[in-house]
């Protein structure tokens, strides 16, 4: 058994530094009626990627603003078509909705490919080789089945989506792997459901005792459930993800996460939004400080094991639809 070496992520972004970049780009986005926001998005991602350090090297984002602009125009047209058609004629609205549902998995695959191919670390690109068929199964078929089973299948669907995404992702020539089971997902969702039931019981007790003061606890409990899901799911997903023989981990804590999310919200509201860049930096700092890589052997061995043959990226670039639909 080889020794494992732990390498934590480190996020080095600074609030004031990012604020200056953010506000200038926001102004330009507003003055150009949103067109420049594609350039602003590329800068934001570059700033966050380059400030994310792992084992002495940072990540890089290579996406071009034009590709993002194209994706946004497509998304805008689809949404506008759906809204307008639905207003004019409900039947036409349903037709466009069905069309959207059929096109969406295909678009998601292109978008994932774009996102991963345009990310790199130590000069090697990430990649995505999920098939369209797989995407239709997890992004169309399973969601329909989920609704038909009154959401009993929801944790399973979530599991399959993450499995499809992570098993088909690569770093250079090395594939990621996803070792979670659907049972892991059901465990977390059932705990959240249990907390929700607890809230219900609590509500019943405080109503029966005519003690409305106890109701104050309800929103707190609800907030805790939201934080619980926002922390435990990423923890599970990343801790069960590996790269080749190496493992990743995420160890966020619900209390700390909620504190940051709450103070961020407060800051944003009190400053009419000027705190947004600071809030994003704080959250990224916390999330990355809880994440890391468990490398088999030492770092030199991990690094030496990562290679990229030309065929892998060449194929990807040629087939690139150059589209990013995530807004």
């Amino acid at each position: 058994m080889q020794t494992q070496q732990e390498h934590a992520f480190e996020f080095t972004g600074k609030g004031w530094e990012y604020f200056r970049i953010w506000i200038v780009n926001l102004l330009l986005s507003i003055l150009t009626l949103g067109i420049y926001s594609a350039w602003a998005k590329v800068r934001r991602l570059q700033y966050f990627y380059r400030n994310t350090q792992l084992a002495g090297a940072s990540f890089e984002y290579h996406g071009t603003p034009i590709a993002i602009l194209k994706g946004r125009i497509i998304a805008f047209v689809l949404l506008a078509a759906y809204t307008v058609a639905g207003q004019m004629n409900p039947l036409l609205g349903i037709l466009i909705f069905l069309l959207l549902a059929v096109v969406m998995p295909w678009l998601i695959v292109r978008s994932l490919r774009f996102k991963l191919y345009n990310s790199s670390y130590r000069g090697l690109r990430f990649g995505f080789s999920g098939s369209d068929g797989g995407a239709y199964a997890v992004f169309l078929l399973l969601p329909i089945l989920t609704i038909l089973t009154l959401y009993l299948l929801a944790p399973f669907t979530h599991f399959k989506i993450k499995q499809y995404q992570h098993n088909n992702s690569r770093f250079g020539d090395t594939f990621f792997r996803f070792d979670a089971t659907s049972g892991n997902f059901y465990g977390i969702y059932l705990k959240a459901l249990g907390l929700l039931l607890l809230a219900g019981v609590f509500f019943g007790i405080s109503a029966a005792l005519h003690m409305p003061v106890l109701m104050v606890i309800l929103p707190l409990l609800y907030l805790y459930i939201v934080g619980f899901l926002a922390v435990r799911l990423p923890n599970l997903i990343w801790s069960k993800t590996g790269l080749g023989e190496h493992d990743l981990y995420s160890r966020m804590e619900v209390g700390k996460y909620l504190w940051i999310a709450f103070t961020n919200l407060l800051g944003i509201v009190l400053t009419l939004g000027l705190y947004i860049p600071f809030a994003q930096i704080r959250m990224a700092q916390y999330k990355f400080s809880c994440m890391g890589l468990l490398a088999q052997g030492d770092l030199a061995e991990f690094v030496a094991g990562q290679v990229q043959t030309d065929s892998a990226t060449g194929e990807e670039a040629a087939e690139m639809f150059d589209l990013d639909i995530s807004l």
Partner: peptide
């Protein structure tokens, strides 16, 4: 500077 050749992850 750190140089990466684009084929391996090694930094020079």
């Amino acid at each position: 500077a750190q140089y990466f050749d684009g084929r391996t992850a090694t930094a020079h």
